[in-house]
Amino acid sequence: MKLYEPITLAMPLAKWIGDFIRENGRLPSGEEVREAMKEFGLEESCLDRGLAVYRSRFLIALVFARNENLIIDVISSSGELSDALEVIAYHDKKIEAFVVEILPTNDLEYEGNIGIEPIILDEKSLEPESSPVLGHFEEDNGGMFLVIDGETYERWREGEDVTTCPICGGELAWRGEKAYCLDCGYGVKVVRK
Rank of each mutant, 00 (worst) to 15 (best):
M1T: 00
K2H: 00
L3W: 00
Y4K: 00
I7Q: 00
I7C: 01
L9R: 07
L9N: 06
M11S: 02
M11A: 04
M11E: 01
W16E: 05
W16F: 08
I17G: 02
D19P: 01
R22V: 11
G30K: 02
V33E: 02
K38D: 03
F40P: 01
L47A: 13
G50K: 08
V53I: 15
R57P: 01
L59E: 09
L59C: 06
L62I: 09
E68T: 07
L70G: 03
S77M: 05
S78P: 00
E80P: 01
S82C: 03
S82G: 01
A84T: 09
L85N: 02
A89L: 05
A89M: 05
D92A: 15
A97R: 13
E101T: 14
D107K: 10
E117R: 11
L121P: 00
S125F: 00
L126S: 00
L126W: 00
L134M: 15
L134K: 12
F137E: 14
E138M: 15
E138R: 15
D140V: 15
G142D: 15
G143F: 11
G143K: 12
F145N: 10
L146S: 08
I148F: 06
Y153A: 07
Y153Q: 07
I167N: 08
I167P: 09
C168E: 11
C168H: 12
G170A: 13
G176F: 04
A179I: 11
C181S: 12
C184W: 08
G185H: 07
V190W: 03
V190A: 05
